[in-house]
């Protein structure tokens, strides 16, 4: 309360606060509306209007989306795709980042800038060749086709972030290990990685939501309904229940639950990940 008193010391501040509250309400409206919609029936909304007291409250929409809408399949698929992609990207980028951060060698800068530039590529420019490559490797319409692509594309961002962080680790620690006869791979695995853990946590949290939320690559590299992740699945759900909006909205809410939970529990890392590259 003391906090509040200190803040509202001028009328100007009160006004700003009111504007802030109103903006926040507007920002929350879409999610609140979805929550309300998901527990009503479409007939109820259409006949009585959206702004009305619901005739009945039901969890049926969630059940329909989960069973008939196929979310029980799509949601596990998302994890099957996201988790290996995440592990592989983190593994490879932390290896590359170590070399880029800690060794002077020819091509260091070139490789580094290629990674940085690559992370900003409009991915449309990769769409057709990657489609063709995946097909050529016999990976079209398999989880692995998608996993390989995510691993590769996210390497740019992860290597960039981890490399910058690894540069801040004091060199004496590594030097001491080297003098003790520690091999470079051991130094990377046993000393560098534990010291980089904060950055790895931040980058991994962010990457989890990015890969999990991908839609474009899922529809390009997968065709079978039974392999689709939640994003592509929700698009199918929309086609299947064209007019039954409460089911679609319930499906969307279910589908976003994993990333929402990750965000709620790992918010600090998520935000750190976003700001890691922007400021030092």
């Amino acid at each position: 309360m003391k906090n509040a008193q200190a803040y509202f010391k001028s009328p100007w501040r009160v006004l700003i606060f009111i504007v802030l509250v109103l903006t926040t309400i507007i920002w929350l409206v879409p999610i609140m509306t979805s929550l309300v919609t998901s527990i009503r029936t479409f007939n109820d909304i259409l006949y009585r209007g959206f702004i009305s007291w619901p005739e009945e409250i039901t969890l049926g929409n969630f059940k329909t989306a989960w069973e008939r809408g196929g979310l029980s399949r799509y949601l596990p698929n998302s994890f099957i795709i996201t988790i290996p992609s995440l592990l592989l990207t983190m593994l490879f980028s932390s290896m590359g980042a170590y070399a880029l951060a800690r060794f002077n060698f020819r091509g260091n800068r070139l490789i580094f800038f290629t990674f940085v530039g690559g992370m900003l590529l409009p991915f449309q420019v990769l769409m057709l060749p990657v489609f063709k490559l995946t097909d050529f490797l016999g990976l079209y319409d398999t989880y692995w086709g998608l996993i390989f692509f995510h691993t590769a594309f996210q390497l740019g961002f992860c290597s960039f972030m981890l490399r910058n962080y690894m540069r801040t680790v004091p060199g004496e620690i590594l030097e001491a290990a080297r003098i003790d006869g520690c091999s470079e791979f051991r130094i990377w695995w046993r000393i560098m990685l534990p010291l980089t853990l904060p950055a790895i946590a931040a980058v991994a949290t962010l990457e989890f939501t990015w890969i999990f939320n991908d839609y474009l690559w899922a529809i390009i590299l997968l065709r079978s309904e039974k392999l689709k992740p939640i994003t592509a699945g929700l698009a199918s759900l929309q086609g299947q229940f064209v007019t039954d909006w409460p089911v679609i909205v319930a499906g969307a809410l279910l589908g976003t639950l994993p990333t929402l939970l990750v965000f709620l529990f790992l918010q600090r890392y998520f935000i750190e990940g976003l700001t890691l590259g922007a400021t030092k």
Partner: peptide, 14 residues
């Protein structure tokens, strides 16, 4: 943190 697809569907309903 919401997937674009999720945002699109939620707003499509709004």
């Amino acid at each position: 943190v919401l997937a674009m697809v999720v945002s699109g569907l939620i707003w499509g309903w709004l």
